[in-house]
């Protein structure tokens, strides 16, 4: 039975993708296809190009060969979320002020109740009015998860999402990923660690 807030069908496909950085080839000949409800785990050692692949898919890097296709009934420009090392939290602003800006940019809920609810969900309800500089690494990651909750978007690009999170945080992340997949979203995740949810496909980078 389709969920009430299910996403329109999406499909992300890469064909013969290659990427270079500073003249050095990072990866080449990569192809994958990812549909709504599926999760692709990109695994490999440090420096294998996992993050670069995510940045290419996000449109932050241009591939040297091949292309990434996004098929969706919804808006193509507003289909993705990126959770990566750069969390976009300004130290001088409170968690709430930071989240509100990202909600406005991502077209999500920006009222106090919704933000408080999202922060409660990631275990940061008490930190809503704290300056972002006071947050630990794990708490900053959790604030990033709250950003994903506030603005529903079908495709999540997660770069080492479990790094910095404790057991409880991993459980929250696992629950969020499972819910996202159940409502028809797709997840592309780069990691070298164990994930809380078993991926549908795996892509090994050398």
């Amino acid at each position: 039975m389709p969920l009430e807030d299910a996403f329109p069908p999406v499909r992300l496909a890469a064909d013969d993708l290659a990427c270079e950085r500073g003249g050095r080839p990072i990866f080449h000949g990569l192809s994958f296809s990812l549909a709504g409800g599926e999760m692709l785990a990109v695994v490999g050692p440090n420096g294998a190009g996992k993050s670069s692949l995510l940045r290419v898919v996000a449109g932050l890097l241009s591939p040297s060969e091949g292309r990434v296709d996004l098929d969706t009934d919804g808006e193509r420009e507003t289909a993705m979320h990126l959770l990566a090392y750069g969390d976009g939290l300004r130290n001088v602003f409170t968690v709430k002020e930071n989240l509100r800006l990202w909600s406005r940019l991502y077209g999500g809920a920006a009222d106090d109740d919704a933000m408080h609810e999202a922060l409660e969900e990631v275990g940061l309800g008490h930190a809503m009015h704290l300056a972002a500089r006071a947050l630990s690494t794990g708490q900053r990651r959790r604030a990033g998860l709250a950003r994903l909750i506030l603005s529903p978007r079908p495709i999540w690009l997660l770069d080492e999402p479990t790094s910095g999170l404790d057991k409880d945080g991993e459980a929250i992340l696992g629950r969020m990923m499972a819910e996202h997949l159940a409502s028809g979203g797709a997840i592309l995740v780069a990691t070298h660690l164990q994930l809380p949810v078993a991926p549908t496909h795996r892509l090994e980078l050398q």
Partner: peptide
Amino acid sequence: EDGGLELVIVSG
């Protein structure tokens, strides 16, 4: 520095 630029680009 804080990765906000990437998030702005991804936001569309």
